[in-house]
Write a protein that binds this DNA or RNA. Structure first.
Lengths: 146, 146
DNA sequence: ATGAGTGCAAATAGTTTGCAAGCTG
DNA sequence: CAGCTTGCAAACTATTTGCACTCAT
């Protein structure tokens, strides 16, 4: 895992460079935290885990935006309007089952991407994207709720 | 349309009453606006269309919350974290193709509800809900963007 | 050295909460 | 008349923007 994570990281950094983004301490940190996290993270969790380097939330947001444009990051919307962030393989994306309490997530196998895009295109829509997420209370959180 | 809308409205109001909600001028107005709108509306659009009665956005939000609990209303999340609201038939719900510019929406036929719920249940999740929305730029908005 | 990247402060948008007064059943 | 509803003001959260300074290339 750690070996493959390491190569993942340098591959991602290379990709960022190819997109004309500069390699900064902040960005390296953020990519590393994202790559090592087994779960999608909120902007603030990300800042905390990135330690001293990524002190400012603003920087986190701006870099997440840049990462998304570079096609290496996906946003996962929560029911309350905030979001989690997760690395993806170039342009790929995933759907999830998400606990609304602890934000633990599991990837779902389904994806209707093509079907939905075709429908949208046939109706004259451009720049199509879709969201498919399932929310619930996981076993642990439900137990804790007494 | 207007005749059936009228019966729709009284049926909905009856339902609210059954749920222990009082019938106020505000609520009647909101239900009427929602029932007559061919498109889902934002909280603020709803307030404006409801006219003099529903002056306060706070009241709109509180009533939308109540309507949802009564099972007659669905929230549609947008990409920016805000939401649109739409009446639904008791507990039913829909998925949409939504223009990110003008918020025009079309209902989609797909719904993976059962499949997704089963998966989530099998993983020990409770209080399961899901979101499936498609976003794009509709033909008109794309043309206007020049 | 040039312009992308950053931090700080402040603004924003959408939504929520507290509390006193008003209205429904 | 009890207590659900409402309005006003204010708080809140997540996110965005402006601007001067810094750093990667």
């Amino acid at each position: 895992m750690s070996a493959s994570t390491k190569t993942d990281i340098s591959r991602i950094l290379r990709r960022l460079k190819e997109c004309g983004l500069r390699l900064t301490r902040n960005r390296e940190n953020l990519v590393e935290v994202l790559a090592q996290s087994k779960q999608p993270l909120s902007a603030d969790e990300l800042r905390q885990k990135a330690g001293f380097a990524a002190t400012d939330l603003v920087t986190v947001y701006r870099n997440l935006e840049a990462f998304q444009s570079a096609g290496i990051l996906q946003r996962i919307p929560l029911e309350n309007g905030s979001q989690l962030f997760e690395l993806t393989d170039l342009g790929d994306h995933y759907h999830h089952l998400i606990c609304r309490e602890c934000h633990k997530t599991e990837r779902l196998e389904v994806c209707l991407g093509e079907q939905l895009s075709n429908k949208a295109k046939s109706l004259g829509y451009k720049q199509i994207a879709h969201v498919l997420e399932v929310y619930g209370i996981c076993g642990e959180c439900d137990a804790q709720a007494t």
